[in-house]
Design a protein around this nucleic acid. Structure first.
Lengths: 167, 167
DNA sequence: CTCAATGCAAAGTATTTGCACGCTC
DNA sequence: GAGCGTGCAAATACTTTGCATTGAG
């Protein structure tokens, strides 16, 4: 019995809910994956193990895990709700490559501290935060550079620079 | 003719599109509002002026404004896409009160610089970023404190502390 | 034996798309 | 006049809800 499972059971009991095979399976599958999952992703995985399980149960269980503090909702702006671990996992934020979709996780104590300072200035009490940086990852930058080089050497006139607004 | 309108026209022309009364009206209405608007919000406003306008046109025009660099999409996690000004408006981020929904805009050069530093460390080229802090605003904190005081003075036993995980 | 949980289907929401007609350029 | 723009309705995509049945405590 892992610590997470204990946390889950405790939450279940405190709320007068029931332990079921489906919830156990969904939790285990969720715990096994170390990356962000959408409900859909998790549903597919869980279905491999128990094809009779319903999409709805996955949705409901993910909400439950979030309540229990085991998972945390993350929205990347693609319209899907993703979930990631939230129990004894150090908080981190994300850089998302708009070209290849790669997600880089990062953490900065300095950034967290600065954030606390900003919140204090506005007498704001932080519960949660979300920091998402979108751009090009190292690899896609290299690819873009190469493509540009090729084009130039091919003799075509230069197009407008590829710089974009930085927000 | 405001600068924004010129930017819009230029974009329209560059893409071989056409200027229409609807687009003008939507742009004007958008420019007049200084706060975040969802498509729905803007649709309602625009409809007051021209009841024959369609929801779809508002959606399409907002995409157009975003392309032209006049608007920027913001998702607050409520499932709606909001739009805010993006032309010659200093970039800012948001603190959102989970109690009353109030949105506090903030900007910190220090934070922006730190962010650039972190991106550089990962050889990441920033295009865009989103920083959202969720919690309680000053007013709702005060209200919560008062409520707690009342409860205590009423003689009921203390419940568990209201501290939440800070992520 | 009671009440919560499940799975299905249907409903909801937010947004996009197909299409016939209308209007810019 | 050619082709984009518009509004409507229908389609889509994700998530939630109603309900009868099943199952845990």
């Amino acid at each position: 019995m892992t610590e997470e499972q204990e946390v889950f059971l405790e939450h279940i009991q405190k709320k007068g809910l029931k332990r079921t095979a489906q919830r156990d399976l969904i939790l285990d599958t969720f715990l096994r994956m170390e990356v962000h999952l959408s409900s859909e992703d998790l549903y597919r995985l869980v279905k491999q193990e128990d094809p009779s399980i319903g999409q709805t149960t996955v949705y409901r269980t993910l909400k439950l895990l979030t309540e229990a503090g085991l998972a945390r909702e993350v929205r990347f702006g693609d319209g899907l709700t993703h979930y990631e671990h939230n129990y004894k996992h150090q908080h981190h934020d994300h850089m998302i490559c708009s070209e290849c979709g790669r997600i880089i996780e990062f953490f900065s104590a300095e950034l967290e501290a600065l954030q606390d300072k900003l919140a204090a200035k506005h007498h704001f009490q932080i519960t949660q935060h979300l920091h998402r940086i979108i751009g090009l990852c190292a690899e896609c930058r290299r690819a873009a550079r190469e493509a540009r080089k090729q084009e130039t050497s091919a003799g075509t006139q230069n197009r407008q620079a590829t710089a974009r607004s930085r927000h």
